Computed example of a mutant assay.
Amino acid sequence: MSHASTAAPTGRIELKLQKASQLFHTLDPSPFRESDLAREAEEYIVNWALELPKTVPIEIVIHLPWDEFSQSSASDIAGAIKGYFAHKADAMSSEMRELFKTGRLAALVALIVLSFCLVSAWLIGSTLKEGPLSQILQESFVIFGWVAIWHPSNIFLYSWPPLARRRKLLRRLAQATVTVDGDAPNPA
């Protein structure tokens, strides 16, 4: 694979391949339109897309030797790349839905635990005489209650934004213009 174009405003990512099969997972028996991209090809495209300005459309250009190039396979390759990234974006949406479902359940459990701990700390403070044991128990319940809400807080504050950014990038790649061209044959 070659390098991406340095003209960042165009949003162009270029790959120079020896064979079209370099793009796809070699153990996947599916036709191009349904094949998974090779891990290296996906990483290459995604890493270059991350470097591009977020406001420009992305163009992916695949250069193949003339003997590997044909119009029918070019449209199959373009469709496979766009379809692959669309599928990955949909999978990311599912992952985010599952994360929020987990977060809602964790928040419910955490609020119950926090409520129990705060009431327990209050009961200990009002029933036991003032002293180190009473204070240790009260503080322990309060700390445990606040620790219980850490996980849902983490989900709703920090875990989903990276997934949303990744999904947005994958959607941009699914909407990219994909061009496959054949390098002119060398004269003999």
Score class of each variant (00 low, 15 high):
A86G: 08
R39L: 12
R97Y: 10
H3K: 08
L133F: 03
A106Q: 07
K168C: 14
F32S: 07
G131F: 02
V142H: 05
L15K: 02
V147C: 13
S75V: 12
V180A: 12
L170A: 07
P57R: 06
Y158S: 09
S72K: 11
I81Y: 04
W160C: 10
V142R: 12
R172M: 10
A74F: 07
L114F: 15
P162D: 00
V142L: 02
Q18E: 15
L105M: 04
I124S: 00
A188Q: 14
H151V: 09
V178C: 09
E14D: 14
R171M: 03
E34I: 02
S126T: 15
S35E: 04
Q71G: 11
E40F: 01
I149D: 05
R97D: 15
L15N: 13
L137H: 00
N186V: 12
L173W: 00
D76A: 12
E68G: 06
I149G: 03
A74K: 02
Y158H: 00
C117K: 09
L23N: 02
S35H: 06
S2C: 10
L37F: 08
S2T: 00
N47D: 06
D67V: 07
T10G: 15
T10P: 11
S75H: 09
E51I: 09
T177I: 11
G125D: 14
A49R: 05
S21N: 05
L163E: 04
A91K: 13
S30K: 05
E68Q: 15
W150S: 11
P31V: 14
A188L: 08
M96A: 03
F141W: 12
S94D: 13
H63K: 04
S2V: 12
S93C: 05
K101R: 13
G103M: 03
E59K: 10
Q18C: 04
S94P: 00
E139G: 05
W48A: 08
S2R: 04
A8E: 08
L157W: 10
D28Q: 07
M1W: 01
I124T: 10
L52F: 07
R33Q: 11
L105I: 15
S5E: 13
R39K: 14
V119T: 08
T102P: 00
V61M: 12
L37R: 00
P162F: 01
A107I: 02
